[in-house]
Design a protein around this nucleic acid. Structure first.
Length: 350
DNA sequence: AACACGGGGGG
DNA sequence: CCCCCAGTGTT
C-alpha cells in the first residue's frame, strides 16, 4: 500500500522543491555538511552558516586541518557544538582511511562520528544514490499521518519500523529525491502544530489520517519533561579597555566555548566582591547589570548580572579568567548567545 | 529507554 | 508561553 506514495511524491517534489544552497552542487562533502547543520536546526538558520562554512573550509581536508578556535567560531550561534567537533573527527578519519573522500558505503558512513541512521541515509541516498531511507522528524510525521500510526514517534522502535517500511518501498531509482520529497512535504505541506495544508498534498488521497480527519492527532508523542531551572550570577569584569572571559570545560554544556565569568546561584554584592578579591583583583565599583533568561532544551538559566570595574592590572590571565581587549576580541572568541544580554555591558563604560 | 546537548522562529 | 526543528552520543 505505502508504495503508492512513490510516484506522486516524486512528481510533486520535482515541481515544488525549494532552491537551497546545498542542492546546487550535492557532493558528498556538501551534503554531509548541510545534513549535520540541519540536525534539529531550521533551514533558514542554516543557509548563511552553510555558505560561510564552505567558503572557509571548501574540502574535507580543510575541515580536518582547521584549528578548533576557528571551527567553533564558524559554528557560533548554531548550537549543539559537538556536531562540529564530531564532524572534524570524521573528516580526519576520512582523510586517514579513505583518502579524503567520503566512502560510498552506508555502513562506513554510519560508522563515522556524529553520523547516525538519518544522516547516513541522507548522505548515502542524496550524494551517492544508495537506496537507504533518511528518517527525520518530518518523515516521521508524514508517515505516521499517512498510515495513521498511533505509536509514539519519540520511541526509537517507532523510528526503526518507519525506516524498515521505507526501505521496503524504496527503488534503486533516485533514492535521494524520494527521501527529500518526504522531508520537503513535511517541511512545507504536512507541517506540525495542526495547520497541515492537505489541499496541497500530492498523497492526500492515500492518507489515512486525512480520510478520517485525524491529521491533528498525529504524530503521537509523549509529553516531554520540564526543564530544570538554574539561577546564575554573571559578571562583567572590566579592567580598563579589557574585560574578563573564561573558557568552559571541554565536556558538557557549551563545551569549549568562552563565557563571561559566572557562578551558580544568586550571589550578594558582598559575595561577588569577595570572589573578585579572591582572584587578587581589586574591585573599584560594582553595579547591577540587569536580569536575563536563556532557555536551552533541557535547562533554563535565570541570570542576574553585575558590572564590576577593577583596578588596573597588567595580567592577562587571572586564575581561570582571561582579560581580552573589548574591541579586538569581538570576532575572536566564540561566546554562546546565552550571554548576549550582557554583551552590551562589555562595550560600556562607567 | 532516558537524558544531555543550543538556539531561534512561529503560533 | 509552548512547540519543534533535515538527530546523535552517552549512560
Amino acid at each position: 500500500m505505502l508504495e503508492q506514495i512513490r510516484e506522486p511524491l516524486l512528481a510533486w517534489y520535482r515541481e515544488n522543491k525549494r532552491q537551497l544552497p546545498w542542492r546546487e552542487e550535492p557532493t558528498p562533502y556538501h551534503v554531509w555538511v548541510s545534513e549535520i547543520m540541519l540536525q534539529q536546526t531550521r533551514v533558514e538558520a542554516v543557509k548563511e552558516y552553510y555558505t560561510r562554512f564552505l567558503q572557509a573550509l571548501p574540502e574535507v581536508k580543510d575541515l580536518a586541518q582547521c584549528p578548533e578556535e576557528q571551527l567553533l567560531k564558524l559554528w557560533e550561534g548554531l548550537g549543539y557544538y559537538n556536531r562540529v567537533r564530531n564532524m572534524q573527527k570524521a573528516a580526519i578519519e576520512i582523510v586517514e582511511k579513505y583518502g579524503g573522500v567520503m566512502p560510498a558505503d552506508y555502513e562506513k558512513i554510519l560508522a563515522l562520528p556524529g553520523i547516525g541512521s538519518y544522516t547516513a541515509g541522507a548522505v548515502s541516498s542524496i550524494a551517492y544514490g544508495i537506496p537507504r531511507p533518511a528518517v527525520d522528524g518530518n518523515v516521521l510525521r508524514v508517515i505516521t499521518r499517512i498510515t495513521e500510526n498511533p505509536e509514539d514517534i519519540l520511541k526509537q522502535s517507532t523510528k526503526k519500523k518507519v525506516e524498515t517500511a521505507l526501505q521496503e518501498i524504496m527503488l534503486e531509482d533516485c533514492p535521494g529525491d524520494f527521501n527529500q520529497s518526504l522531508m520537503e512535504l513535511g517541511a512545507t505541506v504536512c507541517v506540525p502544530n495542526g495547520m497541515a495544508k492537505c489541499e496541497q498534498c500530492p498523497v492526500a488521497q492515500m492518507c489515512q489520517a486525512h480520510a478520517h480527519k485525524t491529521v491533528l492527532e498525529y504524530p503521537k508523542k509523549t509529553p516531554k519533561k520540564q526543564r530544570k531551572i538554574e539561577e546564575r550570577t554573571v559578571l562583567v569584569i572590566q579592567n580598563g579597555q579589557e574585560f574578563a572571559i573564561s573558557r568552559r570545560p571541554p565536556k558538557g554544556l557549551l563545551a569549549g566555548l568562552y563565557e563571561l565569568p559566572n557562578r551558580e546561584g544568586y550571589l550578594s554584592e558582598e559575595e561577588i566582591l569577595s570572589y573578585v578579591k579572591d582572584l587578587h583583583l581589586l574591585p573599584l565599583h560594582i553595579r547591577e547589570a540587569g536580569e536575563a533568561k536563556h532557555i536551552f532544551s533541557h535547562v533554563e538559566w535565570r541570570m542576574k548580572g553585575y558590572f564590576i570595574k577593577v583596578a588596573a592590572t597588567e595580567e592577562k590571565k587571572v586564575g581561570s579568567l582571561i582579560f581580552v581587549d573589548r574591541k579586538e576580541s569581538r570576532g575572536k572568541y566564540p561566546i554562546p548567545s546565552a550571554f548576549s544580554a550582557y554583551r552590551k555591558f562589555i562595550e560600556e563604560d562607567f
